[in-house]
Structures are given as structure tokens and as C-alpha cells.
Design a protein around this nucleic acid. Structure first.
Lengths: 243, 243
DNA sequence: AAAAATTAATTGTCAGACATTTGAAGAAAT
DNA sequence: ATTTCTTCAAATGTCTGACAATTAATTTTT
């Protein structure tokens, strides 16, 4: 591990960066134990609270985990896809809400990226994944479902579609795009007729995937994108009228 | 802001989560000042080091920034696309290196996602973006370029391609995929002949985008993906032979 | 030999202090 | 009256030292 600290930064940030560099560069490997807090104090010549703040920074990124007790300490964490999903979703959600990203932009990104999965999904979809998609379709067609539940099911459907591509890197990359849009989708009220149309398109997608028909899947996904955008525009029109 | 703390977690993590929830839910808005550390101590009934650890966790995620001095304190940060890029790249890089993601998987994800940008890029590419791509192509065709520099230029080329889609959400989502693969690409030694082929394909892509020809761009991108994978397989064969 | 108690190491938390930075108010000089 | 300088107060950054809680290893007891 290197111990070169930049000036003009907070000590805890410098120490965190030094350790982070060690992890990214590979000199600290997964499950390796970091020196104890008091050892780190000596090595970096700082007090324990400062070291601890540095470690908490790393813990916030899931880069390390800590264990109490005799053989405890801080260990380099294997960043799991699970952890990475979570971070992605948090970041994407905040990014969208804080930067006033328009529904159009977010929606465009989502469907464009999803389209990238279709060709692979048509080849590789498993029966399980198809079943998951059909289950969500069934949920969506139940009357009396709240808008929130409908959107949550929509997200689940699309997650299943993405997962069907069988590429964990893509699933991870798209998790953010798909989940982060949910709050925006929740602002759209889906009337019964609109829901019917969406369910119909979802069904067509599932059918096309079952038949391993990439071209049709892609076409229907395009229709769904168009339909979703149209709904959003309609809602926007109604709002501006009533205002 | 809510102050409900889950049990069975570290205090600093609970406090961080409570504040994070406030930010995500919208009760804490951008540039708003959090209570001072001593105020937070009172409100959460914990000591200052504990509060500080919580704040450092949030700072590590770029959710807050702190300022010293009279009118200082912790402020809710507007998460910029810039910040989000950085986090994405860190996370993606670690994810790939720690989980032994194969070159094939990473490469597949990258080209599939990139393909999603092409249709939009063909419509929207600006002269500046085209110029950036051509500049990278020029760099790539210079003899004597190190493999690292060649790969870095490759990344820059593809970033320009992604940015040409004119959708910041997509740029952000793909930043990780494109950048994180660079270390893997660096493991491939590009002979002069191989580089020539790549430069040729890059040129065809730039030409097709200039002519706003989405179909051709997509086709060439597919060839590039195939070619890259073939190179990787070749390298793998050579390694296994010499071993 | 097995179970229970002790011990040591380590992180989690607390309390209080001082250092450093920074904006603002007041005082002094022009 | 305006500008500049000084002082002050508030806030974060850091340090010291201590105690609590947890856990694995060790020792003691049965």
C-alpha cells in the first residue's frame, strides 16, 4: 500500500483515497484485512477518529466491511453485483431528481438501452425469466391496482427483460436506468384503457421472446416507447390546461 | 427530516441513512444547509465523532459537501453528471476486476449498449463530436503509439460516439461500461495490422455518422465488436499455447 | 474431554479540548 | 462617508484519552 498523501485535502479524504487506490490498483486484494485502526494511525500519523472517518468513507462505497471482536478489523470487500445495483439506483435516482431530467430524456435512454438487450434476450431467455414476465403481466391486468403498484410491476417486468439478456454487466448497467425512472412514471396516472394497451404490448413482447423473435420484440418495444411518451405528453397537456 | 433510526446497525450508518432518505425523498433540497454537527448531536442523541462519521459517509457519495468557517456547515450537494460519471467508473472498474468478468461478457455489454446509441447519434451528432472522433482516429493511426495510449484513444472515440446521442442519461449510464473495459483492453496487444483494421472501422463509423446513416453505422459497429472479440480469442489462444 | 469462565484484541462510542478557517461586525484611518 | 484593518464568533477539522461491546482464543473448571 502506498502512503503518499496529497496536500490541500482533508486528512480523512487523503487516507481514504490512498486505501482506495490500493484496492483499485490491486495491492489490496479481496478479503484481505487492513491494518487495525491503531496501526493505521501510526502509519499515517493521525488520530483514530481521522482514520475512522476515512474508513467510513470507504464503507459507504461498499469497498470495505468491518467486523468487531478479537479477529475483527476492516476487510476489503468483494463488490458484488448486488451492492453495485444499489449504488447505481441511488445515484441514478438522485441524478434524475436533482437535475430536472425530463421524462422524455429519461424515457428515451431507458428504451434505447433496453432495445440493446433484446437481441441477446431473444437468444438466451430462460423459461424462468419468461414466467417472471408473464407473472408481472398478470399482476398488471388485475383491476384495482394502485398506480404505484402498477409501475412497480412495470419495473419488475422490464428488469426481467433485461436479465433475460443473460449478461450481468448489462443488468447492472441498466438497473439504474430502469429503476430510477419509476418515480417519474408514478406521476402518470394510468387509466384502465391505457393499462390495457400496455398489458397488450407486454404480452406481445413476452410472446415474441418465447418465439425467439428478436425483430418483433424490438418493434413492439419501439411501440411501447412511443406509447409511453405519448401518455406523458397527454398528462403534461392536461396539467397545463388545468393550471 | 425524519429521525427514525433502525436498530441493529451502527449508529453512524443509521444517521447517514436517515439523512440520505431525507435527500432522496425531497425534504432536504439542493444547497440546503444541514443543522450544524452539534445540533445533529442533540437531535440524534449521539456524540460528535459519530455524527461526523455519518457525514463522511454521505460526503463519500457526493451527497453533501462541507465548508469550514463562520457560515460553513454541511450542504446538500447537487449531484452533477460529472460526479456520477466518476462513481460509475470506480464501481464498474472494481466490479469487473473483482468478479472475474470475462472479456467476452464485458465486451458484449459494451457493444450492445453502444449500439443503442447509434440511431440517436446518427440524428443528432454535431460537427464538434464528429471532429472529436476524427481527431482520435488520427491519433490511433500514428505509428509508435503505446498500447495504453491506443486504448485510451479508443475509449475517447467511443465516448464521443456515445455523447453524440445527445442524451446525458445515456452518456452517464455508458461511461462505466466504456471506461471500465479499458484495463481489459490493455491486456490485448494490438499489432500494426490489427490497429489498421480498427482505424478503418472507426473511419467507416465516422463517415456513416456524418452521412446520418444509422443502419450502416450499426452494421460497422457490429463488425467492430466481432473483430474485437476475435482479437481477444486470438490472444487467449496464444497465451494458452505458450503456457 | 467437554463446558464454562476469563482474557485479549478490536471496533464502536463518548467527552472534552484545541486548531483552523471563514464570514461578519466593529473600529480605525483616510 | 468610505475603505481598510482588527477582532470576534461560529463552524468544521483534528487530537487525546477513555470506556463499552463484541468476538475469538485461552484458560480454568467440572
Amino acid at each position: 500500500m502506498k502512503y503518499e498523501l496529497d496536500q490541500a485535502q482533508e486528512l480523512s479524504a487523503q487516507i481514504a483515497q490512498a486505501i482506495r487506490d490500493g484496492i483499485m490498483e490491486g495491492s489490496l486484494i479481496v478479503d484481505q484485512r487492513l491494518p487495525s485502526e491503531s496501526d493505521l494511525c501510526e502509519q499515517f500519523q493521525v488520530s483514530r477518529p481521522t482514520v475512522r472517518e476515512a474508513l467510513k468513507r470507504l464503507a459507504a462505497q461498499n469497498l470495505i466491511r468491518t467486523q468487531r471482536g478479537a479477529s475483527g478489523g476492516a476487510f476489503v470487500n468483494r463488490l458484488s453485483f448486488e451492492d453495485a445495483y444499489g449504488q447505481q439506483i441511488t445515484t441514478s435516482t438522485l441524478l434524475l431528481s436533482m437535475n430536472a431530467v425530463s421524462f422524455e430524456t429519461a424515457c428515451e435512454a431507458r428504451f434505447a438501452l433496453e432495445r440493446a438487450c433484446v437481441a441477446l434476450a431473444a437468444q438466451r431467455r430462460t423459461p424462468d425469466q419468461l414466467a417472471a414476465m408473464r407473472a408481472e403481466i398478470h399482476r398488471q391486468s388485475q383491476p384495482g391496482l394502485s398506480d404505484e403498484s402498477f409501475c412497480a410491476s412495470d419495473v419488475a417486468f422490464h428488469r426481467a427483460l433485461v436479465d433475460a439478456a443473460g449478461n450481468p454487466v448489462m443488468s447492472y448497467q441498466l438497473a439504474g436506468a430502469v429503476e430510477a425512472i419509476e418515480p417519474l412514471m408514478n406521476m402518470i396516472t394510468f387509466t384502465a384503457r391505457k393499462r390495457e394497451k400496455i398489458v397488450e404490448l407486454h404480452t406481445l413482447i413476452a410472446d415474441a421472446l418465447e418465439g425467439r423473435d428478436a425483430a418483433t420484440t424490438e418493434a413492439v418495444l419501439g411501440q411501447l416507447a412511443e406509447h409511453t411518451l405519448e401518455l406523458a405528453r397527454e398528462v403534461a397537456r392536461m396539467r397545463s390546461k388545468s393550471a
